[in-house]
């Protein structure tokens, strides 16, 4: 994955749209730095990355990004309160051991937290369980149950409930279809929960 002539992945573009120019941004689970590189180029942000895989970190640093090896579950505690304008957790929440604690940390470190995650309430996921009786293996969730890094799946509704529990205000939210396009901005939660393949939330506390 890299920033090509067509721009970044659509879901990354959507996240970028939430971010003000020259903001201080921490990308937790930054991978090889695709989003950070795009944000630095397009929004001139002061970006930092945390990534659990050392290979990803080394690639980030080699391409000139500021990144460290770290674990969202254990290493966010070292950051000061409100040290960033935005803390991004892109497609990583479901792989953390303690998503609630991670979410609390994001809200503590950032003025705003931007969280994207795959929606386990998506109709294809439901169908797989309903008709095949098997844990879903789809294009976007390609792992078998026994080797998946995704240990804490949730649905959009589950996530909304968690936000309420931790006292986070949802400033903005959208559900994305399989291609990463935003679906029905004014649709009710149940619709998003069924037809959203993933979701992006902007939270504040």
């Amino acid at each position: 994955m890299s920033v090509n002539s067509n721009g970044p992945r659509i879901d990354l573009q959507l996240i970028a749209d939430f971010i003000a120019p020259r903001a201080r941004v921490l990308d937790v689970g930054c991978g090889d730095g695709e989003l950070l590189a795009y944000l630095e180029q397009d929004k001139q942000v002061d970006g930092r990355g945390v990534e659990i895989s050392q290979r990803g970190v080394n690639e980030c640093v080699a391409r000139g990004l500021s990144a460290i090896q770290g674990d969202a579950d254990t290493d966010l505690v070292f950051y000061p309160d409100k040290g960033f304008d935005y803390v991004i957790l892109s497609q990583t929440l479901q792989a953390t051991r303690n998503p609630r604690e991670v979410l609390e940390q994001l809200l503590r470190i950032g003025e705003r937290a931007i969280v994207s995650f795959p929606n386990f309430g998506y109709w294809r996921v439901r169908l797989s369980l309903l008709f095949r009786g098997r844990m879903p293996v789809t294009r976007d969730l390609p792992y078998s149950w026994y080797d998946t890094p995704n240990i804490h799946f949730c649905t959009i509704r589950d996530f909304v409930a968690l936000c309420e529990e931790v006292g986070a205000t949802v400033e903005s939210a959208m559900a994305l279809d399989r291609e990463g396009h935003s679906i029905g901005v004014s649709m009710p939660w149940w619709f998003w929960n069924l037809f959203g393949q993933q979701a992006v939330f902007v939270l504040k506390r």
Binding site: Q54, V57, N58, C60, V61, S66, I68, Q69, F78, G83
Partner: peptide, 13 residues
């Protein structure tokens, strides 16, 4: 991190 500094960290195998 706690000091809010810009830091990269690479561990090489």
């Amino acid at each position: 991190n706690a000091a809010g500094a810009s830091v990269s960290f690479v561990e090489i195998e």
